[in-house]
C-alpha cells in the first residue's frame, strides 16, 4: 500500500465529516429522524404513509442547495472528477438504489448514524459494503 499524499485532505475531510455529524444531530434533536439519505429518498419515491413526505422533501432540497452555497462562499468549483461514464453510471445508480433499499441504509444511515449508535446491524452493513466496494474498485483498477 502506498499513501497518496498529494490527494490527502485530512483537515477538509474531517471538517466536512463533523458538519455531516452535526446535520444528523440536528435532524434527530429537532425532528427525531435518522439522517439516512437512502431511507429519506425511499420514503419519497414510495411513501409508507401520508404526512410523512414533506419533511423528507425539505431535507433533500437542503442537500441539493448545500454544495451550491459552499461553491458561492469559496468562490471556486468543487472538484468532481467522474470515474464511470456511459452505461456504467445508470447501472451503478440502480445497484446503489436497490442495494440500499434491501439493506435498509447507506453510508449516512448505517455509516454516520448507525455506527454512532453502536448498532451491530449497521456495523455489519458498513463492513459488508466497504469490503464489496474495495473489491469492486480493485477489479476495475487492477484486474480488468
Amino acid at each position: 500500500m502506498t499513501i497518496d499524499f498529494e490527494a490527502f485532505t485530512p483537515l477538509a475531510s474531517l471538517a466536512g465529516g463533523v458538519m455531516i455529524g452535526f446535520a444528523a444531530l440536528l435532524l434527530m434533536a429537532l425532528h427525531g429522524r435518522v439522517m439516512g439519505i437512502s431511507g429519506i429518498l425511499g420514503g419519497i419515491v414510495k411513501p409508507s404513509g401520508s404526512g410523512d413526505v414533506s419533511w423528507r422533501v425539505l431535507f433533500v432540497i437542503g442537500t441539493l442547495v448545500g454544495p451550491v452555497i459552499v461553491m458561492l462562499i469559496m468562490g471556486r468549483g468543487i472538484d468532481m472528477t467522474p470515474v464511470a461514464s456511459g452505461l456504467m453510471l445508470p447501472i451503478a445508480g440502480f445497484i446503489v438504489g436497490l442495494g440500499t433499499a434491501i439493506g435498509s441504509g447507506c453510508t449516512s444511515g448505517h455509516g454516520i448514524c448507525g455506527l454512532a449508535r453502536l448498532s451491530v446491524r449497521s456495523m455489519s452493513a458498513v463492513g459488508t459494503f466497504m469490503v464489496t466496494a474495495i473489491i469492486t474498485v480493485y477489479i476495475i483498477r487492477h484486474v480488468v
Binding site: I95, G103, T128, T132, T136
Partner: peptide
C-alpha cells in the same frame, strides 16, 4: 442486510457515488 449492503458496495465502487453525494 448483508445482501443489500453487498450490492450497495458494488454500485458505490462502480460509480464512486453513494446516495448523499449523488443528490
Amino acid at each position: 442486510l448483508i445482501v443489500g449492503s453487498a450490492l450497495f458496495g458494488v454500485g458505490w465502487g462502480l460509480g464512486g457515488l453513494c446516495p448523499g453525494p449523488a443528490v
